[in-house]
Each structure stands twice: as C-alpha cells, then as structure tokens.
Design a protein around this nucleic acid. Structure first.
Lengths: 184, 184
DNA sequence: GTCTATAAAGCGATAGAC
DNA sequence: GTCTATCGCTTTATAGAC
C-alpha cells in the first residue's frame, strides 16, 4: 500500500479522535486504538507527529467540505435547491448534532493559533459559498454576506447547545430556522 | 486567610486557565503560574485536584451568571430593558467575543460527561430566564422558549465564529441581530 | 513498513519539612 | 498553610530488531 493511500485511509479515523477529544486531549494512545496501528507505523506515516496529523486531518476535512458542500452550493443550477441540499448534508454530516465540528473545537481551544489559517479559511469558504448562492437568488452583496455569516454561526451554535443540553431537537430546530430565514 | 476566602480569590484565576486551554489542556503548571501558588497549596485548597477545581470554577461561574444576568433578566420591571441589559452584559463579559465561553468549551470537549449536569443547568437556566422575560413582554410560552433558545445558541455560535475568523465584528453583528430578533 | 523497547519530558498527585 | 522533593504514570517521540 502506498503511503499516500494509507494516509487517506487513516485520516478519517484520526479525525474522529481529534473531534472527540480536541487537540490537547487527542493522545497517541487513542490514535493507536482508533487506527489499529503501532506507534512506529504512525510516525512512519506522519513524521511530524501529532501536529502533522492534525494539519492533514484539517486539510482533508476542508477538501471534503469543499467537494461535498461548498462546490455544490456554488454550482447548483437552482440556488434554492443548492441551499436546501447544504442543510441536508450538514444534518447528515453532524449526525443531527450528535457529532461535533472539529474546526469549531479547534477554534475554541488553545491550538487555534497553531491552525489559525486552516480554521479561518474553512469558515471563510463556507460563508463565501453560501453568500454566492444567496446572491444568485437575488440578495444584494452585503445582505447575502450577512445572512450567510449568520447561518454558519447558527450551525456552530446549534452544535454547542445540542451537546450542552444533550437534545438533538435543538439542532433540528436551529437548522430549520436558519434555512427558513435564508429562503423564506 | 480562611480557606473559603482564598478559594473565592483563586477561582477567577483558575477559570481563565480552563477557559483558555480547555479541561484537558489546563495543566497544574499553568495553574501555578496563574495563581502564584505552589502545587501543595493548590492541593490544600482543592483536595480533589483538577476535577474539583473545574467543578468549583463552573459552580462559581454559574453563580455569577445567575446573580448578574439571569436574575436581573427575571426581575427587571421592564422586560425589554432587562433583555437589552443582558446583551450589554454578555458583550462585556465575553469582551466582544475575544473571550470564549468556558461552559461552551467544556460542552464540546471530552470532559462534557464529567460535568454534564453543570453544563446543562447553566444553559437551561439562561434559556429559562430569557424565555420568562419574553413571556412577560407578551410572547406565548412555546414561542418565548423557542426564541430564547435561538438567542443563546446565536451567542455561542458567535463566540465560535468570532474566534475562528479572528473578527470581533462578527460578535457585534450577531448580538445586534439576536437582540433585534427578540425585541423587534 | 511494522512492531517492541525505550528514552526524555511532563502529567496529576502525595509526602514531609518548615 | 506553604513550599520542595518525589512518586508513579502517561505523554510525545525515537531507535532498532524483524
């Protein structure tokens, strides 16, 4: 197996460790458990250790969102359908709020400085893609940008509050309200 | 100095460590630096160690929010003024989004299970106090509850996105929009 | 490329002198 | 009540056998 291929297979497993424990709480022991690989193999794949793993995980996540959410949002023939598809994809990806946003977790933690560029560009790309859809639907530039920012913000807030209250109803209500506010 | 008094003085300093580094990232070395106390003195004050410190910090925070934000919200003669005062207090407390919500950080991390009750009751109290204000202003029970939940959610999302984009304008816009949506 | 063994540092927590 | 010294364990990371 090529190293390129192996890394691609490891990244989702490592992502779950970082997502569930944060950067500080993600230990090599947890990664060994999650991947089934030994310490040596992990370092063979990621010579830069934990920091390189996190950086690759964030890049992989960014690529996934770009391909599966941001690009379809931009390219949808009907912007309304594109936005609806985005909310459906978000609900699926975050498992109705049961799963947390890794980039949000990193943004709140002390590791933010280490990954500031990745964190910023992820959210900036999301807001821009959504704003572009809204403009194609007829909103003015400033309004589209403001509405897009508010929607992404609500998704992040919904993830926090859903987990805090342990009530996935919060997530469902928030997504429905955000979609209604964008399109209604 | 009584132990009671000393704890009260230590808690804000410890809170900043937990806030900035999360539960996992908050090390005793950081706490020693923040408080100026030795390891032994910290354990004399908090025999339960790190977990007891975090528990006390969360309880202290809850008491502060109850006294300074939730209670005034409930007791304000004019509910509209009470809600406006809440947003002003929130803006001040979180320093326009520069500061992060400790309870939100804990909610997203792996330590959530350890402090699930404190996390849930903090947000539940906030939503209930805000919903009570909205009802006194004339909103029906279900609507008030839904609007209150959305507002607290937006504040949390604003903290995430503000830090992610490193742009306190996000926080200001979000608070203004949430206030407008509650009262407008 | 995989593993085990091990290093060096840091962790939370305790003991004991003062 | 405060400190220093230290324990036992875990951490990240490396070395070397296979």
């Amino acid at each position: 197996m090529t190293r390129q291929r192996q890394r691609a297979e490891l990244l989702p497993q490592l992502a779950e460790v970082f997502r569930a424990h944060g950067y500080e709480g993600a230990t090599l022991a947890l990664m060994i458990e999650a991947t089934g690989l030994g310490k040596g193999s992990l370092y063979n794949c990621f010579p830069g250790g934990k920091e390189e793993m996190a950086r690759e995980v964030l890049a992989h996540l960014d690529a996934w969102f770009t391909a599966e959410i941001f690009a379809p949002l931009r390219d949808a023939e009907d912007p309304v359908r594109g936005i609806r598809a985005m909310f459906a994809a978000v609900d699926g990806y975050f498992r109705s709020g049961e799963r947390v946003c890794l980039v949000g977790v990193v943004a709140l933690g002390a590791a933010r400085d280490l990954f500031a560029d990745a964190v910023r560009s992820y959210f900036a790309a999301w807001i821009e893609a959504l704003a572009a859809s809204l403009r194609r639907r007829g909103d003015g530039k400033a309004l589209a940008r403001r509405k897009a920012e508010a929607a992404v913000l609500e998704i992040q807030g919904a993830l926090v509050l859903t987990r805090a209250l342990d009530d996935s109803g919060v997530f469902a209500r928030a997504l429905a309200a955000a979609e209604q506010r964008l399109l209604g």
